[in-house]
Every structure is written in C-alpha cells, then in structure tokens.
C-alpha cells in the first residue's frame, strides 16, 4: 500500500462517489416518502396482486412480498438500490487498472519505484473506501428517511440492519469480478458497457432463475445471494449462498493479483 497512489486514486474517484451517493440517497428518499400513502391502500393492493399471474409477480420480484409492511415494501424497492450499487462497484472494478492502460498513463505509474502488488493494493483500498462511503450514505439515508416517514408502522431493526450490511459484500462481489474480467481481456475500450452488462446481467439472471425455478442460477448471481425479500422475511442471510459470493470474491482478488503482476502493459502503437 502506498499512500500517494491511494490518495491519487481516491481523488480521481471522488466526483463519481459523490454523484452515486447523492443519487442513491435521493432514490431512497423517493421510495420511502411514498410509503405512508402506499400503506393506506396496501390491503387493496395485496388483494389485487393476488389476482396477478404468478409469473408476472415473479418477474418483478413481488412473489410472497407483503407490501403492507414497512420492510416488505422497503425490501422490494431496495432491489433498485442494489442494481445501482452493482453498476457502481462494477464500474470501479472494470476501471481500476484498465483506465490507466486505455489512457496510456500506466507507463507513468509502472515505471515508478513501486511494485505492481503495491499499486493494485493501493488502488483496491481506494476503490473500497469509495464504496464504503457510498454504503454509509445508503445506510444513513435509509435510517433517517425510514424514521421520518414510517408513521405508525413498526419494523424489525435486525432485519433492516442485516439488509443494509449486506451491501458491502454485495459491492465487493462486483468490484472483484469486474477487476478480474478486466485483467482477463486484452483491452477495455469503455468501462460503462462492461459494468452495465455485469450489473444488469446478474439481475436478469436472478429474475430468470425465479421464473424458471432454476436453482442453478441462484448459485451465480449475488442478487440471489443477497435477495432483500429473503433477508427481510427470515431476518437472516442465506448463509450458503453468501458463502458462494465470498468464495467468488476471494478467487477473483487472488486471480487479479496473479494476472496483474504478470501482465504485459501494451504500448502505444
């Protein structure tokens, strides 16, 4: 870890961190503020939903969800926060070393007296700090807005806490997988399509998994490993699935170090 690289990275990410954090806080504000008006008609809504075809409900992740309870409602909408978190983390993962190669600044950094392991560690820690800042904003805004708008409703704090804490591992998954993919390909021309692909792709996989009842797909996607409905209903993480995420993270990180320390840095042609 080198402090100068860490701060350089952190400064370069700061604008993006602020944008993502504020957007997610705004998203949570909009969702939660609508709850009180929503709760009034929730009984009606639940009745209506019971008449919807099963497949449609599954597609929107509304199966077995009780929108009349605060956490049932919050858990359902938290999926959209998760999609944002996934895309943000994947963007940082894909860009961590590939941006320097695309903009040819890798030559500058790698001819300095630092090892590649030090470079990667510093960059990873900077990205991790950026993600933790976003996570903290999500935590704080969730608590504050829920307290502001919950009205007479009550909720189980343990369930909310577990849901909110899960996003750290959730983001790490996309950071690590994005990073290792970026090191497996020769060159990434633009980070955004990759990050959107990974983020949405995993979400779509989880939806398909629900619709097809395929438990194999559950194994792959963190949207299943950290399914908000499951956490809210069981007041617990789905431990075996979470462990899959952790294993993928560890393998991706180890793989990234191995690949990066052996990588041939492309020259301007």
């Amino acid at each position: 870890m080198r402090a100068n690289i860490f701060w350089q990275e952190f400064k370069m990410q700061l604008r993006s961190v602020i944008t993502w954090s504020l957007s997610m806080a705004a998203l949570i504000f909009v969702f939660v503020s609508l709850f009180s008006s929503f709760a009034k008609d929730a009984a009606l809504l639940n009745e209506m939903m019971a008449n919807f075809p099963e497949a449609l409900l599954t597609a929107f992740g509304l199966n077995n969800v009780n929108l009349a309870t605060l956490l049932g409602y919050f858990g359902f909408l938290f999926l959209f926060v998760q999609i944002c978190l996934a895309i943000q983390a994947a963007t940082y993962g894909f860009g961590l070393v590939s941006i320097e190669e695309r903009e040819w600044t890798a030559d500058f950094l790698l001819t300095k007296p630092v090892s590649r392991t030090q470079i990667l560690t510093s960059k990873l820690l900077a990205a991790l700090s950026s993600l933790l800042i976003t996570d903290a904003v999500v935590w704080i805004s969730s608590f504050v807005f829920i307290t502001m708008f919950k009205g007479d409703s009550t909720y189980e704090p343990r369930a909310l806490l577990l849901l909110l804490l899960s996003i750290v591992v959730f983001q790490l998954f996309f950071l690590a997988v994005g990073l290792v993919i970026s090191l497996l390909v020769k060159r990434i021309r633009s980070v955004t399509p990759y990050a959107m692909g990974l983020g949405f792709g995993m979400y779509v996989l989880s939806v398909f998994g629900d619709m097809l009842g395929e438990s194999v797909l559950e194994l792959i996607t963190p949207f299943k490993h950290f399914n908000p409905n499951y956490i809210v209903q069981n007041e617990a993480w789905d431990t075996p699935l979470v462990l899959i995420s952790v294993v993928v993270i560890v393998i991706s990180l180890v793989g990234s170090y191995v690949l990066y320390t052996r990588r041939n840095i492309p020259a301007v042609v």
């Binding site: 350089q8 370069m12 040819w104 001819t111 007296p113 630092v114 090892s115």
Partner: peptide, 21 residues
C-alpha cells in the same frame, strides 16, 4: 529488483500521456 532499481532510473517515452485533469 524492479521497484528498487527504478529509484535510479528515469524514463522518457516517445509518446507522453499523463492524467489529463
């Protein structure tokens, strides 16, 4: 010994690229 050696190496590439901002 790359990292240690590069303390005493200067490099000027043919095309220079730095952090634009």
């Amino acid at each position: 010994y790359g990292p240690q050696l590069r303390q005493d190496i200067g490099y000027l590439p043919s095309d220079v690229f730095y952090y634009e901002r």
